[in-house]
Amino acid sequence: SQTQRTQDENEARRIAEEWKRRGYDVEVRNRNGHWEVTWD
């Protein structure tokens, strides 16, 4: 799996939607004030 971090929730949601469209299983988490998008 791969993880991308961002400070911006909207960006995190956009990234998550992009990977979901490509057929990946995606998880979005808030950790210590930043957002992590993990896909595999």
Rank of each mutant, 00 (worst) to 15 (best):
W35H: 01
E9P: 06
A16W: 05
N30Y: 15
W39G: 03
V37M: 02
E17N: 08
I15P: 00
E9M: 06
V26L: 03
R13F: 09
R21W: 05
R5D: 05
R5N: 07
G33K: 03
T3L: 10
R22I: 05
R31T: 11
Y24I: 05
W19A: 04
R29G: 05
K20T: 09
W19T: 01
R13Y: 12
E11H: 07
T6H: 07
R14V: 07
Y24F: 11
A16G: 05
T6S: 06
W19G: 04
Q2E: 07
V26W: 01
V26E: 00
H34P: 01
N10Y: 12
Q4T: 13
G23I: 01
E27T: 14
E27I: 14
Q2A: 09
W19R: 03
R13Q: 08
T38W: 11
S1I: 13
E11N: 05
R14N: 06
D40N: 14
E36F: 10
I15F: 05
R14I: 08
Q2V: 11
G33P: 01
S1H: 12
H34E: 12
R14M: 09
Q2F: 15
R22D: 03
Q4Y: 15
N32R: 05
T3R: 07
E9W: 09
Q7E: 12
A12M: 04
H34F: 15
K20H: 08
A12H: 01
Q2G: 14
R31C: 14
Q7L: 12
E27P: 01
E27L: 11
G23A: 01
E17H: 06
D40S: 15
R5I: 15
V28A: 02
N32P: 03
G23H: 03
R5W: 14
V37T: 02
G23Q: 01
R21C: 14
E17Q: 07
D25P: 06
V28M: 05
E18G: 06
E36N: 03
G33H: 03
V37N: 00
A16V: 04
Q7K: 14
R22G: 03
R13H: 09
T6F: 15
T38A: 09
E11G: 03
V28D: 01
G23R: 01
E27R: 10
R22W: 07
V26H: 01
D8A: 04
R14F: 06
E9V: 06
R13L: 10
V37K: 01
N30P: 07
T6N: 04
T3E: 05
R5K: 10
W19V: 04
R13V: 06
W39L: 07
E11D: 07
V28H: 01
V28P: 01
R5E: 08
E18I: 11
R14Q: 10
R31V: 15
G23W: 02
T38H: 10
E18S: 07
R21L: 09
W35G: 00
E18K: 09
K20S: 09
W35P: 00
R31G: 05
D25W: 14
D25E: 12
G23D: 01
H34M: 15
W35T: 01
G33T: 07
R22N: 06
V37I: 10
H34R: 08
N10W: 13
Q7D: 13
K20Y: 09
W35Q: 00
S1G: 12
E18F: 15
N10H: 11
N30W: 15
E36D: 04
D8F: 08
E17Y: 07
Q4S: 08
R14W: 07
R29W: 08
D25I: 14
A12V: 03
R21F: 06
W19N: 01
R22Q: 09
H34Y: 15
W35A: 00
D40Y: 15
N32K: 05
Q4R: 12
T3G: 07
S1K: 14
R14Y: 06
A12F: 02
R31D: 09
E9K: 05
T38M: 09
E27S: 12
T38Q: 08
R29P: 00
A16T: 03
E9H: 05
W39D: 01
R5L: 11
W35V: 01
S1N: 10
Q7C: 14
T38V: 13
R14P: 00
A12T: 01
R31W: 11
N10K: 11
T6W: 08
G23C: 10
D40A: 15
S1M: 13
R29K: 11
Q4I: 15
E11Y: 07
V26Q: 00
V26N: 01
E17L: 09
W19F: 11
N30T: 08
V28S: 01
W19Q: 03
H34K: 09
E9Q: 06
R14C: 09
R13D: 03
E11I: 07
N32G: 12
W19D: 00
D25A: 12
V28T: 03
T3V: 13
D25Q: 14
T6A: 14
A16I: 04
G33W: 02
N30V: 12
V37D: 00
H34I: 15
R31N: 12
Q2M: 13
E17W: 08
R31Y: 12
D25N: 15
E18T: 07
N32I: 04
D25V: 13
A12Q: 02
K20E: 09
A16E: 06
R29T: 13
A12S: 03
V37E: 00
W35C: 02
W39N: 03
R21Y: 06
V26P: 03
R31I: 15
E17M: 08
D40I: 15
H34S: 10
S1E: 10
D8P: 02
N30F: 15
E17S: 06
I15K: 04
R21Q: 11
D40H: 15
V26T: 06
Q4K: 11
R21H: 09
V28G: 00
A16L: 04
Q7N: 12
Y24A: 04
W19H: 03
D8Y: 07
A12R: 02
R29L: 11
K20N: 07
N30G: 05
S1W: 15
E27D: 09
W35R: 00
G33D: 07
R14A: 10
W39K: 05
R13P: 00
H34T: 14
V26F: 02
R29Q: 10
H34G: 09
R5M: 12
H34V: 15
W35N: 00
D40V: 15
N10A: 14
N10G: 11
R29C: 11
W19Y: 13
Q2I: 12
Q4D: 05
Y24T: 01
Q2H: 14
G33R: 02
V26K: 01
E17G: 05
D8I: 04
E27Y: 11
Q7F: 11
T3P: 07
T3D: 04
E11T: 09
R31E: 10
V26C: 06
T3W: 13
E36W: 10
Q7P: 10
H34L: 14
K20F: 10
A16K: 04
D8L: 05
N10L: 12
I15D: 01
I15V: 08
D40L: 14
T3Q: 07
R31L: 13
A16D: 01
V28I: 13
R14L: 09
R29M: 10
R31K: 11
Q7Y: 11
R13N: 08
Y24P: 00
E9D: 03
R14H: 06
Y24Q: 02
W35I: 02
V28W: 03
V28C: 07
I15N: 01
Y24G: 03
A12D: 00
E27K: 12
R29D: 04
E36C: 11
N10R: 11
G23E: 01
W39V: 10
G33Y: 03
E27G: 05
K20D: 03
W39A: 06
K20I: 11
G23T: 01
Q2R: 14
D40T: 15
T3N: 06
R29Y: 11
A16F: 05
W35M: 01
R14D: 05
T3M: 12
I15R: 03
E36H: 04
T3S: 10
D8V: 03
D8G: 06
R29E: 06
T6P: 04
A12L: 03
K20P: 00
R31H: 12
E27V: 14
R14K: 10
K20W: 10
W39H: 06
V26Y: 02
N30K: 13
E11K: 04
R21P: 00
G33E: 04
D8N: 10
E36Q: 05
Q4F: 15
T38P: 01
V37Y: 02
N32Q: 08
